[in-house]
Design a protein around this nucleic acid. Sequence first.
DNA 1: CGGTTGACCAAGT
DNA 2: GACTTGGCCAACC
Length: 106
Amino acid sequence: MGFNERVWEVTKQIPKGKVSTYKEIAKALNCRAYRAVGNALNKNPFAPIVPCHRVVSSNGGLGGFAYGVKAKIKILKTEGIEIKEDKIVEFEKRLFKLKTFQEIKR
DNA sequence: CGGTTGACCAAGT
DNA sequence: GACTTGGCCAACC
């Protein structure tokens, strides 16, 4: 299993209404490949299955989205996450505590 | 095997 | 608050 798949596995556990960051995902994989995480999500072939729209920047900003940031905002709002001025509202409270890749694979 | 490119980050100006 | 800088790591040429 390659790096990308591990990224997707970790991302899949984020529930509706919560978010996580590129950095946190890297941490869950026991490395610091924030940028590589972004790349992996960008190429994500499981568009709806892996909730890549729930992954945002560490500073509470939105990050990017393969189909446009606008679409990302729309989806997040649909799921009950408020966005103001391109920032996540109550960012810290919306953060989901990720499990390690190992823990997921139990 | 180098060099470049990102949906990045933190610290410094 | 806006830039710039250096560091990060997989993927692709």
